[in-house]
Design a protein around this nucleic acid. Sequence first.
DNA 1: AAGCAACCCAACCGCCGTTTC
DNA 2: TGAAACGGCGGTTGGGTTGCT
Length: 400
Amino acid sequence: MGHHCCSKQKVKRGLWSPEEDEKLLRYITAHGQPCWSSVPKHAGLERCGKSCRLRWINYLRPDLKRGAFSEQEERTILDVHRILGNRWAQIAKHLPGRTDNEVKNFWNSCIKKKLIAQGIDPKTHNLLPAASKNLLHGAGANNNNNPASAAGQFQSSSNSNGSTTPFTISSPTKAAVATVAPPAVSMAPALYDYNNVVPNPGASSGMLMGHEHAAAAMQLQQQGVYPSYADNGGGVLMNFRDQNNHAASMSMSMSMDFMNASSNSSSSMELAAGGMTNNPGMEGMAAFLDDEAAAMWATTVEEGMSGPGMLLQQQQGLVQDEVVVGPPLIGTSNGGGPVGNGNGNGKGAMDMMDVSSAVYGGAAGATTTAFDLELMESCGMFYGGSAGTGMGMEQLQWDY
DNA sequence: AAGCAACCCAACCGCCGTTTC
DNA sequence: TGAAACGGCGGTTGGGTTGCT
C-alpha cells in the first residue's frame, strides 16, 4: 500500500541508492525545495514525493550535523522531552542540525534505556514505583541507616554507591563546589536588563542571570549587595516576600553540588544572602546557579508549577506556547523589570518548601546537604526585611 | 566459522491539519 | 463549502551491523 500521493505510481521503496541521492540532490540544488509530489517526476526518480521529502530532510540536507550526540545535546533532549514529551519535531528544533527522526532514534535506543536503568520512567521522568519505594524506605545499597538521607540524596546507578536515581546532591562545602568545572554551555540571555539594575541596587527586583552576566553579579557583589559568591559565574537572583509584602533576606550562605550521573558531571548551586540591611530596599536573596543546576532546577519543576525553574525554561527557549505556565513568573515591586508584571504582588507562587521538596526531596544526612529550610529557620536565619517583621519559612513565597 | 540475538537507524505507515481547487 | 492534495508528524518496521556464544 503506497501513500495516497503516489498510490497510482509505480514506486521504488527501501534504501536509497547513491544514484538516487545524486538525482534528488541535483534537482533540489537547482530548483530549491519544491512541491514534493512533483519531484519524482522531474528528478527522474521512481519514488513517491513523500519519500523524497523524507530523504532530503533526514539525510541530504546540507545543514545536517552528523555523528554522535554530545552530552549537551543529550541534556537538551532530556530537558525538552520532560516538558514536551514525544514531540520530536519540537525537540529537534532545539538541536541545530539534528532531525526529529534522529532525536527519536537516539531517545529510543539510548536515553530511554539509560533512564529505565536509573529507575526513571522515560515517559513521566518520575521515579519508577520500585525505585521510588526504595528511596522512600532507604532500601538498597545506599541505605546508610538514615532514611531521610536516602530520600534526599539523588544519586546515579552509575555511581559507585549504586543508588537508583540520576542525581546526587552532595558536599555543601565551597571546596567541593570549586572542584566542579563549569559546563561549557551558555544560557540564553536573561530577560532583564541588568545594566539598569546594577547602578541602582536599591530597586527591589526579581531577576534572573545567566553565566554571561557574571560580570554584573560581580559588580553587585563588589557593591556589597551580595556576598562573594560571584566566582561561580552568574545565576539566579530571587526576591522573597511574605504574604504581607514584607521582604525577607537570609543571613546565611550555602552551596550545593549536583552530580548528574548520566553525564557524570556536576553542577553547583550557591545561595548567598545576608547583610542586606546595609542596602535598604535591596531586599532579597541571591542564588547563583550554574547551568546544570539551573537546568536541573528548571526541569524538576513540573508542568503547571511556577517559579524560577519555569522561567529558566522560558529563557532557554524550552517552554513554548504550547505549555501553559500560569501567572507571570517574575515581576518587580517597582515595575522596572522588563518581564515584570509590575505589581510585585504575584499570586500563585510556589513557596520555598515546595521548591525544596520538589528538587531535593527532603532532608539529608551529615555529609550530604539538601536545602534544609527547616534547619535554616530553626537557626533563626530568616528575618524580616525592610519592614523588620520576623517571619517563618512557611510565609515565604516567590516575589514575582 | 557459524548461528543467534540485540541493537541501530533509515524508511515506511497512517493520521491529522492546512491549503488548494 | 467540501473534497482532494499536500506537508508534517509520531509510531513502527525491517534490514544491516555488531557482539556474543
